[in-house]
Structure formats: structure tokens, C-alpha cells
Amino acid sequence: MGSLLDNSLQIISNTTGKSLFVRLWPLSTAPKGIVYIVHELGGHCLLYDVIAARFLEAGYTVASHDQYGHGLSSGTRLHTSNYQTYVADTLQCLEEVKCQYQDTDNVLLFGHGVGGLLAALLAAQNPGFVKGLILHGPIFKFLEEHASTVNVCWYLSYVLPLAYSPVNGTDPALLITDKDQRMKYARDPFIWHEGPRLSTIHAVTTAMGDLEQVEEPLSCPTLIQCGQDDQLLNKTNLTAWSKRCSKTTKLLFYEGAKHYLHMDTPECTIKVLDEMVKFCDVVRSEAASDTDDAVGSEAASDTDDAVGSEAASDTDDAVGSEAGSDTADD
């Protein structure tokens, strides 16, 4: 892969040789950190320009890619037999971006919807890799009202993997509050408007089970932001899941908002974006403080070792000198 700093749009190959579209929003100065965006199922990375713009303004560089079978990446639209492929692709692209910014290890991961499930899985399976996690309307479990339909999709996926699922969450009216943003979403040619295939429902359900099996889902600070009127969100499951996280997890609901918080009313969007930047700044500050404490502790240890060594040397010298004096007297 060539330098993303020289070309902010690139096509790279994943580990299986498939083409992935990567987007970098670079800074001309050293960034506070890297924010990596994981888009919603059926979406694409350029749908998050407003989030990228806000983080650039705050001093962070931003990157993302279109998942396999999405946007400008190759592959059958919304078809995957293994959700871990998405996790592996994201990890690969994020590693590539980190190579462009070797002076920073402050990596923050943003995931939206089913992309939030992917982000949480990546963080849980790679402890310490990301410093913080931001999730918008993460879907960790399907709604109970869809349970029987999901079960049917699961079994049918073995014989009809490319058939479309009746579980379709792409209606703009269900997703977005602002009417102008709804129209923009409905006309976006890179959004998959047909809904997921049966194979993908199977893969996503398996991934949900994988996350559920993790004893401590997250070891990093996490900000979860949700629309109060998000009709795709299983709030009961999400609330219970957030309480299992081992570090500070902040769960916020925005009144009147739906699934796409960054495409909501201007007032809501500004509030959401400001909260995201504030969270990342706090994570960065705490990480720097931890590093300073570690360095200070190591320096103190080195000083103690040096003092101990010097004291031992002085004692040895004194004992040797005294023994020599006694011998001379004899």
C-alpha cells in the first residue's frame, strides 16, 4: 500500500485478495490521534463526512473503508458467510493507517449500528489495541419482535444464502429524523437499499453470539450514543451489556433522535459531535497521564536501584578499607 498521506483515496487488497476502498481525511500537522470509522451495514465510509470534518477541526486525523460488498469495495452486495472477515479487514486497514502515523498510538474506534458490533468485537478480541470506543446505536441483539423471522433466516441461509432477508432496516423514515437528510440518504447510490442477504443475517447473528460470550466485553473507555426513537435498537440488551464493561462506559440517549445521529437535526448533530470530541480529548489526556505515571515510576525505580547500588558500593569500600587497616596494624 502506498502512502495514504499522498493520496487520501485508495483501493487496497485484503488478505484474501479482495479490493477494499479506503478513505483518509489527513491533517497537515501531527494529529492528537486517529479516529477510525466503521460504517453501518449497507452503508459506506463517505456517509460519515460530517463526523470526519468535526474531528479534523478538533485535531484528529480520520480514516475509514468500505466493507467488502459495500460502497466502492468489491464483492457481492451485502453478502458474507463469516462476520470475522469484516473484523479482519478492519484490523488490516487500521494497521495500514497506523503505519502512516507512527508517532501516535492514540487510536479511537467509531462504530455505527451493526458496525458498532464489529467495532466492539475488534476491541474485545484485541485488548489494548484501541484507547477508546465510540458506538452509535450499536446493534448487539435483534429486537425480540424479529426473533422468529431471524431464526427462519438462519436456517434458510444454508440453502438460499443470497436471498434477501425480510428483516429490512433501510427505510429512511425509520432511520433519520431530518427530512432533507432522509432524501439525501434515499438518493445515495452507494447505499444498499435492498436490505441484507440471508447469509449476512446468519453471520451477524453468529457475531452477536461471539460478543455475548466475552466475559468482559471491553477494557477501554466507551461512549455509547443512541437516539431515543431508534427503532432498530434493543435498549434492554444494550443497557445490560454496557454494565458488563470493565471500565467507564457512558450511555447517552438523545430525545427525538433516530438511528443516524450524525444526520439528525442540526441541533442534535452538533450536540452529538461535540460529545464525541470531548470524550476523545479526555481519553487522550488520561492516556498521556498514565504514560507520565509509568515513566515517573520507572525513573523512581531506576533512581532507587542507583542509590542502592551506590550505597552497597560505599559499604563494600568501607569494609575493604577497614579490613586493610586492620591488616596493616597487625
Rank of each mutant, 00 (worst) to 15 (best):
G2M: 06
G2K: 14
Q10I: 07
I12H: 04
S13L: 14
K18E: 15
W25I: 00
L27Q: 14
P31W: 08
K32H: 08
G33A: 01
H39L: 06
G43H: 07
L46W: 02
L46F: 11
V50W: 05
A52I: 01
E57Q: 10
T61R: 03
A63G: 15
S64L: 05
Y68S: 01
T76Y: 05
H79E: 08
H79I: 14
T80R: 12
S81I: 10
N82Q: 07
Y86D: 05
Y86G: 00
D89Q: 04
E95D: 15
C99F: 09
Y101L: 01
Q102H: 14
T104E: 03
D105W: 09
L109P: 06
F110Q: 11
G111D: 04
H112D: 05
V114G: 12
L118F: 03
G128W: 07
K131V: 07
H136F: 15
G137S: 14
I139E: 04
E145H: 15
V152E: 11
P161E: 09
V167C: 00
L174P: 00
T177N: 09
D178T: 05
R182I: 12
D188Q: 04
P189S: 02
L198R: 03
H202K: 13
A207C: 12
A207V: 12
D210V: 14
E212H: 11
E216H: 15
P217F: 09
P217A: 03
C226H: 00
C226S: 11
D230N: 05
N234D: 15
N237L: 03
T239L: 12
C245F: 03
C245S: 06
K247S: 11
T248A: 11
L251M: 06
E255G: 04
E255A: 09
G256E: 09
A257R: 02
Y260Q: 09
T265M: 06
E267D: 12
E267L: 12
E267V: 14
L273Q: 08
K278S: 10
F279N: 03
V283F: 03
E286W: 04
A288G: 04
S297Y: 07
A306S: 07
A312P: 02
D314T: 09
G320S: 13
A323P: 05
A328P: 07
